[in-house]
């Protein structure tokens, strides 16, 4: 009898540990979400761009010895039948210089729609050095039927951008954010946390 009790206690010990591992791994699956965002932010992987406040951007000295071509592209994802394009296809900037580009979006439908632009910068190793000080991608954009809007993005290419980077492409994908428009920045998931982090800079 006591032998059985000892065995049962031993069983329980292993079961408890195994269940704890299982529960922890369930949590780990969710923990991968912020870890993934953090990893991309630090490394600039996935084309995640840097964000900075305009003060520190102005503080940078302009490196007039280098000229970098910044190309702009824009597209819309399925479910958002808008017209969306950059006003100019490319421009040349000095590292450290604050520049502004304009994108134009037009709601071609007869419904009021909410969209959100998600930026991406290529090449990846330049992404962390591409800082936006003002961007229409920081918030949801609501357009009335037929309304069109010019949307500015102000940015700085930092002076410490790698020497072999001569061209940077800034790309926006506009998504239908109607689902997430009830509250300003989404619904409290880790995903929208990333956006909020972006807004704070």
């Amino acid at each position: 009898m006591t032998e059985q009790a000892i065995r049962q206690a031993a069983n329980r010990r292993i079961i408890t540990r195994a269940v704890m591992v299982a529960v922890a791994m369930f949590g780990f699956g969710f923990a991968m979400v912020p870890l993934y965002d953090l990893f991309c932010d630090i490394t600039g992987l996935n084309g995640k761009t840097g964000v900075t406040d305009s003060g520190s951007a102005r503080a940078q000295a302009v490196d007039e010895t280098r000229l970098i071509t910044v190309e702009f592209t824009g597209n819309t994802a399925g479910g958002l039948p808008w017209e969306f394009r950059p006003a100019v296809a490319k421009m040349q900037v000095h590292p450290g210089q604050v520049a502004e580009a304009v994108y134009v979006a037009r709601n071609t439908t007869s419904d009021r729609m909410v969209g959100r632009a998600i930026p991406s910068v290529a090449p990846n190793r330049a992404a962390a050095h591409f800082k936006k000080t003002e961007c229409f991608c920081f918030s949801n954009q609501e357009l009335a039927p037929g309304e069109s809007r010019e949307m500015p993005v102000r940015f700085v290419v930092e002076t410490d951008v790698p020497q072999d980077v001569h061209t940077i492409t800034l790309s926006y994908s506009f998504f239908n954010a109607g689902k997430y428009s009830s509250s300003d920045a989404g619904t409290g998931t880790a995903g929208s946390d990333a956006i909020r982090r972006g807004e704070k800079g």
Binding site: G115, F175, N176, A177, Y180, T187, G191
Partner: peptide
Amino acid sequence: TAFFDPAGG
């Protein structure tokens, strides 16, 4: 939620 939907981040 928007774990995998870019529109929500």
